[in-house]
């Protein structure tokens, strides 16, 4: 697990959740009451209808952040959770950076943009806006370099992450990962109290 500069730990969690009202509130409430710190959060519809994908980056003491996936999995609306921190993943963040750029500075800024392979998506008389995607350090570095020109606005998304290639089943310890198989349930009769799966 990645240790951050201030001695806390970071984990990246990927979840597939029901696309229903209140799901984000359930997850946010869980994080709040268990004292989990969200460093970043990205949500969007997934490739499966009715399901959204969420990527969390969670920060905190090691024993606390290890609990996150297990606690998330208790929520009925969370269909799958994978703590992918220690797995082979690719991940990206995206930022829009609006920087002060008059005619005199524009050339220097565009040169930086080139080196970072950044798209310039809007140019005004006094400013320009660029789009950068990549790892956090790359984005942090660009922001630092642009600071001296005058940052007008920095808008960053959370991290989105996915496993490289295929996930081989059985690689995980089985403890914190949801069984994706569906729960089937026969309704009990009026007299019985049976009906467990």
């Amino acid at each position: 697990m990645a240790e951050t500069a201030n001695g806390t730990f970071q984990r990246t969690i990927a979840a597939l959740v029901q696309d229903r009202p209140g799901v984000l509130a359930r997850i946010a409430g869980l994080f709040r009451r268990r004292g989990f710190n969200i460093a970043s959060l990205a949500v969007g519809r997934s490739e499966r209808s009715g399901l959204s994908r969420m990527t969390f980056v969670v920060e905190g003491p090691e024993e606390v952040v290890r609990q996150v996936a297990a606690q998330l999995d208790r929520l009925i609306d969370v269909v799958e959770v994978h703590d992918i921190t220690e797995q082979n993943i690719v991940w990206r963040e995206l930022a829009l950076i609006k920087v002060r750029a008059n005619a005199g500075k524009r050339g220097e800024i565009l040169e930086l943009a080139n080196i970072f392979r950044v798209n310039v998506i809007d140019i005004g008389v006094e400013s320009l806006t660029m789009e950068i995607s990549g790892g956090r350090q790359k984005i942090d570095s660009l922001i630092e370099l642009l600071r001296k020109f005058g940052l007008e606005e920095v808008i960053r998304t959370g991290r989105v992450a996915t496993l490289r290639g295929t996930l081989v089943e059985g690689e995980d310890d089985g403890l914190f990962q949801s069984d994706a198989s569906k729960s089937t349930y026969t309704l009990p009769t009026a007299t019985g109290e049976s009906g467990s799966v």
Partner: peptide, 12 residues
């Protein structure tokens, strides 16, 4: 009454 329930996020 005979509809089976479907809770993909819940396993026992």
């Amino acid at each position: 009454p005979d509809e089976s329930i479907d809770l993909p996020g819940y396993s026992v």
